[in-house]
Design a protein around this nucleic acid. Sequence first.
DNA 1: ATTGTTTTGATTACTGGTTAACAAAATCAA
DNA 2: TTGATTTTGTTAACCAGTAATCAAAACAAT
Lengths: 212, 212
Amino acid sequence: MLTSNQNNHPKVPEVVVLRLPLYVRELTDMLQSDKNVVSSQQLGERLQMTPAQIRKDLSYFGKFGKQGRGYPISFLVNQLRSVLGLEKEWNCCIIGVGKLGKAVISYTGFNPEGFNIRAAFDDDISLIGQTVGGLYVQPITELEKTIRDKDISIGIVTVPAPNAQKVIDRMVASGLKSILNYAPVGLHIPPGVHIRHVDPLLSLQSMTYYLK
Amino acid sequence: MLTSNQNNHPKVPEVVVLRLPLYVRELTDMLQSDKNVVSSQQLGERLQMTPAQIRKDLSYFGKFGKQGRGYPISFLVNQLRSVLGLEKEWNCCIIGVGKLGKAVISYTGFNPEGFNIRAAFDDDISLIGQTVGGLYVQPITELEKTIRDKDISIGIVTVPAPNAQKVIDRMVASGLKSILNYAPVGLHIPPGVHIRHVDPLLSLQSMTYYLK
DNA sequence: ATTGTTTTGATTACTGGTTAACAAAATCAA
DNA sequence: TTGATTTTGTTAACCAGTAATCAAAACAAT
């Protein structure tokens, strides 16, 4: 028997999961067009990938298309949103209310997509108690309780690099399983916890290889 | 004969290039320790990867270690910085001086690493001529001339999603070969041009898959 | 010097993700 | 209705990146 997830589909490679939001974004964009069906061929052209890969990826989660016709756009986007868990709202907290943290708090791209920052933490006495972007800055000691009370499941890390590991250990200890990290450091997280890194400097540094 | 790059090493996979900055960062960190040699084993523990992979990656670019001893840290970091082209300074321009663009301009992480934003562009009449973070905002019509005059080789895109493709086409037409994109859209770029995407929303959306 | 230990760099084997291929289903055109 | 065309979902072939293996080199200890 094959290794399966709880939905009886064969185990989904992580790369595939990483591509799902790309599909959702592109399909959502297509909703505004007059077409209501799209083929893997057409979608592949828009996303610059092979139709085979798209069909393969989608097939991990179900049969969403019809031969000779393609995929109904709005149906497919709904299915994928459901697979990703994007129908519900997700509560997030942010740790680190310095310049970067403030910028992330005031970023308008999260809320409309169902990601809401509900709590902010810092260890700087002069910041605690202040209000930043409508959020009351709390001491980190209140992390665990707040995560429980406000049903927070995602942590956003915007502390300086040297503090990041300590903060993440604390988040993990408090039960968070998903972390979005803006600190430019390598981090150790236990299995079962997921992390994504936002690090534009690393991106630049890998491109200069091709510029030399 | 194997496919080779201009240095007579076999063609380097892109994933390897993406890991090089990670090595540089970790090794730079180690410079402050008392040790001056590191084994692939030790480095692998810190970076959570197998020693074999590290040795393989490094071997694309030369023989930096000694059997029974390991890699001299400062030598290795210099070699890798050289491979990545990080010894020289890189001039960047940014297009889009809205909220996000301003945040990127005032981000202090780029300059110390040799990436300098030398010019800013926008198409908003009310912004042109203003000074933002020490940069005089220019109309996009001056893009090509400025890239030439200021020896700019990297473009940073912080315009709203619907404008991104148009702006990138213009950058590419002006000769830029490296683009750091903050706009949340799929983009088409010609071969030979490199792009990296900064998109925290996509990161969040791929993590919720594991939270459901 | 000799023996044992560490560790590289290269080769080989393996694993997993990508692409191709194709039968079956749906649609379209006469 | 028949035949041509489109396009899916699945299986099989392929390819690329990862990991293991191992001889050769460097060092350490006696």
